[in-house]
């Protein structure tokens, strides 16, 4: 299987990449790690006439310290997230979740930006980004926009990113000492997408949950923010009774597609269980 015919462009600067996108309009498509797009091109699900490869743009790679924020270049590959001490220190959910994505070879090529922008509900980073309150910096012909992860996902393969725009950077607020986090992902085997997964980030003020984000992977047309589940925990002392109520609220918003990973009822049930486990671990970690 090889992709259909296309013209290949390998710009070395962001400005050149944006100019090429502007020039080719909807005939152009950005290539990041290629581990979603190239398979889709082999199957003719995607047939861009112009492929604009971002891999030669060095400025888009790497993790930088932004004081109270961590700044992640969109073309940073999963294994470089896992290797980034700065992330383990300031936002450990991201590398911890990255370890659960794909396999070692794929993680050498697959990028956080590609995972974020592809819009596949099976991708893991969208729920993670919603849970950590990430902001996406995108650049297009009109200049730069900053978009919160929460609200970025509009539908399957459909995000707020315009065809002429490139995601350049992801900005994540640094965790506090009282932040707890967890990503629980059920998968059939290494490298698989989630049957269901749940990302939780919360803060404890004493015993009281003062802030909480819960987001779900692969149980709806996009990553889902479980706002009613969050509302159960916010301002409360989290106990098993509330965890159960939150899990039920999370299950109530699930609308998974039935496939070989399971039917609707099973996936919904597993999303609830992943949420229970993630809340418990996040609370434990927030207590330190």
């Amino acid at each position: 299987m090889i992709p259909g015919k296309f013209e290949y462009h390998a710009p070395e600067t962001l400005a050149d990449a944006v100019a090429l996108l502007g020039q080719y309009g909807e005939d152009g498509k950005v290539l990041a790690g290629g581990h979603s797009l190239l398979p889709m091109m082999k199957l003719r699900f995607a047939e861009p006439a112009h492929l604009i490869d971002l891999n030669r743009i060095k400025d888009l790679r790497g993790v930088r310290d932004g004081g109270n924020k961590v700044l992640i270049g969109a073309m940073t590959v999963e294994n470089d997230l896992i290797a980034a001490d700065l992330l383990w220190a300031k936002c450990p959910l991201v590398p911890e979740a990255a370890k659960q994505i794909a396999d070692p070879q794929v993680r050498n090529r697959g990028t956080i930006g590609g995972d974020v922008c592809h819009g596949d509900p099976g991708n893991d980073h969208p729920a993670i980004m919603i849970a950590v309150d990430a902001t996406f910096v995108v650049v297009g012909p009109e200049g730069e926009r900053k978009l919160p992860a929460n609200g970025f996902y509009l539908g399957t393969y459909w995000t707020q990113l315009e065809e002429s725009e490139v995601l350049t950077e992801i900005q994540i607020p640094a965790f506090n000492d009282n932040t707890g986090w967890a990503y629980h992902k059920l998968k059939r085997k290494t490298g698989d997408w989630a049957t269901a997964a749940s990302a939780v980030v919360l803060e404890l003020d004493g015993d009281v949950c003062s802030r909480v984000n819960i987001a779900l992977t692969n149980v709806g047309p996009t990553a889902l923010k479980a706002e009613e589940a969050e509302a159960v925990l916010a301002g409360q002392v989290v106990d098993e009774n509330l965890i159960e109520q939150a899990a039920q609220k999370a299950m109530a918003i699930c609308d998974p597609a039935e496939d070989l990973r399971g039917d609707v009822e099973y996936k919904t049930h597993m999303a609830g269980e992943m949420t229970r486990r993630a809340i418990r671990q996040a609370v434990q970690r927030a207590r330190g």
């Binding site: 290949y8 390998a10 290629g34 581990h35 190239l38 398979p39 490869d53 891999n55 294994n79 070692p104 070879q105 794929v106 050498n108 090529r109």
Partner: peptide
């Protein structure tokens, strides 16, 4: 210096 899958890499890359 990195392991990659050559079925999902364009030769031009």
């Amino acid at each position: 210096g990195r392991s990659l899958k050559a079925c999902t890499l364009l030769a031009v890359q």
